[in-house]
């Protein structure tokens, strides 16, 4: 019988042996993170490096994880173990602009439900979905530390605070 390459799954991600490669400048950036930690504690750089992987590859993918496992002398499962714990790592492709609306108490009482409804209606998608042109993904997230300027949303890493529906329109219209 022909041998079949082992394929297994974690959180709906197909895991294979393929490993990503990166440009010298990205590798240099990765080394600068690694330099912060004792040489025998490379694993400490895992979370900062996962953000680099996510930025470079769009999301934390199988090939990026395989690369990191080699880069940090870890088992692939060690990397997946950490990736799947943290909510900021996306395991599948999302839109270019990740709209994250804060849903926790201060934002909720200050008008988050109206903002969410407005964003979803404007983009024609439900929370958790991506538009067909892969431009926007909308998520509801827990407290982002912007309670005094609620309601708020974060797009990518940018904070947008004191939102009104008009302000949301202006912000979304300005996104390329």
């Amino acid at each position: 019988m022909a041998s079949v390459a082992p394929t297994y799954y974690t959180n709906q991600v197909q895991v294979t042996d393929e490993a990503a490669s990166f440009s010298p400048s990205v590798l240099e950036e990765m080394d600068s993170h690694l330099a912060k930690y004792p040489s025998e504690r490379k694993r400490s750089a895992l979370i900062p490096l996962l953000f680099v992987i996510q930025r470079e590859r769009g999301y934390v993918d199988n090939a990026g994880v395989n690369f990191l496992a080699k880069f940090l002398d870890l088992e692939v499962t060690d990397v997946w173990e950490t990736v799947t714990f943290y909510s900021m790592f996306n395991l599948r492709k999302i839109g270019r602009h990740h709209i994250q609306i804060c849903k926790t108490l201060s934002c909720r009482v200050m008008g988050e439900p109206e903002i969410t409804e407005h964003v979803c209606n404007k983009l024609g998608i439900y929370v958790g979905e991506t538009t067909a042109d892969e431009k926007y993904t909308v998520s509801l997230v827990e407290c982002l530390g912007s309670c005094g300027t609620a309601p708020m949303m974060q797009i990518g890493f940018d904070y947008h605070e004191d939102l009104t529906t008009e302000k949301v329109d202006r912000i979304l219209d300005s996104l390329k």
């Binding site: 979370i47 953000f51 943290y86 909510s87 900021m88 827990e142």
Partner: peptide
Amino acid sequence: VYTHTGAGAY
């Protein structure tokens, strides 16, 4: 002194 990032866990 070094900075380190979390990734969204209360």
